[in-house]
Computed example of a mutant assay.
Amino acid sequence: MEQSYIRIIFWIALFLLFYSYVGYGLLLYTVVRLKKWMQSNKARKTLLFKPLPEVTLIIPAYNERSCIAQKLRNSLQLNYPPHKLQLMFVTEGSTDGTTEFLSEYSQIQVIAGTVRKGKIEAINQAMKLVTTPIVVFTDANTLLNRDAILTLVQHYNDPNVGAVSGEKRIATTQLAEAAGAGEGLYWKYESLLKKLDAELNTIVGAAGELFSIRTGLYEPVEKDTLLDDFIISMRIAEKGYKVVYEPEAYAIETPSFSIAEEMKRKVRICTGGFQSIVRLKHLLNPFKYGLLSFQYLSHRVFRWTVAPLCIPLLFITNLLLAPSSKLFEAVFILQCLFYLLAIIGYMLEKNKLRIQALFVPFYFSFMHYTVFLGFVKYITTTQTGIWEKVKRT
């Protein structure tokens, strides 16, 4: 291949990788600031306070006996009128005593069964029994801040809002695994992008740990769906409703117990990403969906497909171009140094020696490695909504 073509491929790969992780965020920030400046002289719309709506909190809980007592206590202590909050636990297939424990509490509703059908089937079943106008989904292994539901529902005073996502926060410590600490950094950046996405138009994908929807907008989701939170919220957005981001409502989750456990989780998410792209391919039509298509392509599709491909492409083309100039040589050395730090971070982590400065290169490399594993799994296996649970710290 002629060197001129190699240079073109190198610069395109570099641009797309930069855009996927930095450029889109910078563009979002600039456009949002411009939007605020243009609206600065306009009277801001204030929402009139309405009586609080009735809410159902749905909590899928398969074999969660180790944390279910804490989750129940957390749910009962939420700052929301008890007569307007229905707690619904779905424990189908649990064999560790989760159902028996919850059945002792008369103030909650428990949907039980002997067959495990997976999280999305549990949600589909639960939604048939919901009678409240708003439903909130949360995971059994997360804890919500006291005002979470109160904060979420305020947005529904706006009839254009179809769903509201809370924020996922990772509880990490100095002793956290490298993958877990890296996940925490990643979600801080994701939270910033979600905030900018929401200010521009709508977020593209809710956090499954805590999100809410108008009950009437729910449509049953395919039983083999892996990213149910993403599919549910995007199908609401495609109807023209806004999916709002509310960082003051948050769910705290501990990181994965080990790198192996985090890899298992990330591979499933990446597999679900490819599944979602196929099922939501119609959203890539900007003539029909406008700004939503741009956000979906930039924030999700590029991140799940284009960026991972650009990484090896960038390395190979840079290797071929390194002898041709000092610039390409310097960039190649920097790439090698970055991946060397990632490898050192992995080796130290395996020996329980943790250096936070190595979290970023390690997690960046680790995350993209799982994308390739996820793609292979998507094209070689039959997907199911039932998966092996990840052990948490």
Rank of each mutant, 00 (worst) to 15 (best):
G208E: 05
R268Y: 08
L340N: 00
E329C: 11
E183M: 12
S20H: 01
I134K: 04
L210I: 10
A307W: 02
Y245C: 03
Y241E: 02
V390K: 01
L227K: 09
L28P: 06
N63C: 08
G272D: 03
L48F: 12
Y29K: 09
L48T: 13
N145E: 11
G290K: 05
I252Y: 11
F101A: 03
I123L: 11
H368L: 08
G118H: 01
R214I: 04
G290V: 07
Q335K: 00
S75D: 10
L144P: 06
A171R: 06
L358D: 12
H282Q: 14
E92V: 09
V90T: 07
S293H: 10
I386W: 01
I213A: 01
A330R: 05
S212M: 04
V130F: 03
V360F: 13
E177W: 01
Q3R: 09
L34W: 14
I333N: 03
K119Q: 02
E388W: 10
F359R: 08
N351F: 07
D197Q: 14
Q295M: 14
L143C: 09
Y186M: 10
Y218C: 04
W37C: 04
K117V: 15
Y19E: 14
N318S: 14
E222G: 02
F332Y: 14
S212T: 07
K264C: 04
F328K: 06
V243S: 04
A207N: 14
L327W: 14
I59V: 15
E262H: 13
E100Q: 15
K35Q: 15
R116S: 13
Y29I: 08
R146A: 13
G113K: 00
I123Y: 05
Y363W: 09
D224A: 12
I269F: 14
V115R: 06
A260M: 07
L292Q: 08
A43Y: 07
I231V: 15
M1C: 07
T215D: 07
